[in-house]
Amino acid sequence: MKKIAIFASGSGSNAENIIRYFKGSGSVEVSLILTNNPSAGVIERGKRLDVPVVVFSRNNFSQSDAVVRLLQNNGTDWVILAGFLWLVPENLIRAFPGRIINIHPALLPEYGGKGMWGHHVHEAVVRNGESRSGITIHYVNEHYDEGEIIFQAQCEVLPTDTADAVAQKVHELEYRHFPEVIETEILKS
């Protein structure tokens, strides 16, 4: 049984979708949720779904090995970023080489990097008159959104679409593809 830990900073809808996908799986288990946001919705989702949740500080994340030790003590095999907004520090990348996966709400390399998350991405896509958007699932390295791309899926952006409409289309792609791509990557390792 492979154990995954999910990092999330916000509402946790992707985290919940992943947890439900692997519930009862004989091969993958979501064993822990970590968040940097003490008021994140993912905390309540974790409690409701019986997955332990840990809130950590920036210091514990990037200035010490506290988070890495927590993951190792938990027996974590893979780290999944599902709406997590901080840059992953090198010590965590070294502890889980090739075993940290992120999802980004755009077709990288476009609309990636620091400050390009959530609604900021969708607003930029609409503002620039793009005809398509989508998701990118990628491995994590020491730079925002620059790790090796595993999978992309796209959706059409209509001239009449608002940022909210694009967000809805992108969320549908996330919910449909993210758990399956995680499972494929874990099982082939």
Rank of each mutant, 00 (worst) to 15 (best):
Pro52Cys: 03
Val53Pro: 01
Val53Cys: 07
Val53Asn: 01
Val54Gln: 05
Val55Pro: 02
Ser57Tyr: 04
Asn59Gln: 15
Asn60Gln: 15
Asn60Ala: 14
Phe61Trp: 06
Phe61Ser: 09
Phe61Leu: 15
Gln63Asp: 15
Gln63Pro: 09
Ser64Glu: 02
Ser64His: 14
Asp65Gly: 09
Ala66Leu: 14
Ala66Val: 15
Val67Phe: 02
Arg69Ala: 13
Arg69Val: 14
Leu70Pro: 02
Leu70Val: 04
Leu70Phe: 10
Gln72Thr: 05
Gln72Leu: 13
Asn73Pro: 00
Asn74Lys: 02
Asn74Asp: 14
Asn74Ala: 13
Gly75Lys: 11
Gly75Val: 09
Gly75Ser: 05
Asp77His: 13
Asp77Arg: 10
Trp78Ser: 07
Trp78Thr: 03
Val79Phe: 05
Ile80Phe: 04
Leu81Gln: 01
Ala82Gly: 08
Gly83Pro: 12
Phe84His: 00
Phe84Gly: 01
Leu85Ser: 09
Leu85His: 04
Trp86Cys: 02
Trp86Ala: 13
Trp86Ser: 04
Trp86Tyr: 06
Leu87Thr: 07
Val88Leu: 02
Val88Asp: 01
Pro89Leu: 06
Pro89Ala: 06
Glu90Gly: 09
Glu90Tyr: 03
Asn91Gly: 01
Asn91Asp: 06
Asn91Ala: 05
Asn91Cys: 03
Leu92Phe: 01
Ile93Tyr: 05
Ile93Ala: 07
Arg94Phe: 10
Ala95Met: 04
Phe96Leu: 14
Phe96Ala: 14
Gly98Thr: 15
Ile100Arg: 01
Ile100Leu: 13
Ile100Trp: 05
Asn102Glu: 11
Asn102Leu: 08
Asn102Trp: 08
Ile103Asn: 08
Ile103Gly: 11
Ile103Phe: 03
His104Arg: 09
His104Met: 15
His104Val: 15
Ala106Gly: 11
Ala106Val: 03
Leu107Tyr: 13
Leu107Cys: 04
Leu107Ala: 04
Leu108Val: 10
Glu110Cys: 06
Glu110Ser: 14
Tyr111Val: 03
Tyr111Arg: 05
Gly112Ala: 08
Gly113Gln: 10
Lys114Asp: 00
Lys114Val: 02
Met116Trp: 10
Met116Ser: 11
